[in-house]
Amino acid sequence: MQVAISIRGATKSYDGKSVLQGIDLEIHSGEIFAILGPNGAGKTTLVEILEGYRNRDGGEISVLGSDPDKGSLEWRNRIGIVLQSASDAGDLTVTEVVENFAHYYSKPRTPGTVIDQVGLREKAASKVSTLSGGQRRRLDVALGIIGSPEILFLDEPTTGFDPEARREFWGLIRRLRDEGTTILLTTHYLDEAEELADRVAVLVAGRISEIARPSELGGRNRKGALISWSDASGDHLEESTRPTEFIATLSATFEGEIPNLQVRRPTLEDIYLEMIEGQA
């Protein structure tokens, strides 16, 4: 397995306040890696250090074999960045901006194709200032992928998307991964991480508290299932590591259907909230 990004002992503080307290992380080529964490955990700081926007205080970092602090233009040619907020280029059309950015890269994708891929075909000739929030984000993504990057950084990419747009966007990200792009994404949305990420890291107060597959985070796969039902005496909730057996026993005490029966595994959100509780 090839390593696209390797981080060892990365630290950063602002005005004496420690923001990153020794981060260790390896991101493999071709995977979608998500960083989860509450606001102020250091997600954006970490990502901006990897993108070469900020200098770290200590530790070793390599992104595609280069130290981002000394990132050359050739190195930038191989990465793509989708920023958290930009409101530039209002007077230009979508096509004008995308075509212009294509000139900066040595092997750009076709601007028209990229505009189609992010779902902006109908807006291609519209001025950027007329785009909705979600459409602007799609333009940001278009500019992030126009250079056929080997690594794509996405900082909270679907903020402001409606549910349908998010589904479409997820499809696009998966296609990029299937084409071999390594994707590092930060997000607030746990369903997004669960849907997309091959692995997730939870960042709390400047430290990585766990790295795992979304289905295994926080021992989620080994946790018991929650079984709830109702009867004449009221609502009941039980946790069981052998839910099938439990329900078989339970159903013997009822004639026919068990009222309001629900079997539920803890969601990523349950686990995540448990992990950051008291620390954020």
Partner: peptide, 17 residues
């Protein structure tokens, strides 16, 4: 103004000299 809008930050992230 271009710094405010994020224009410069975005350009900084590309291989534009």
């Amino acid at each position: 103004m271009e710094r405010d809008f994020g224009t410069l930050k975005r350009l900084r992230g590309t291989p534009m000299p």
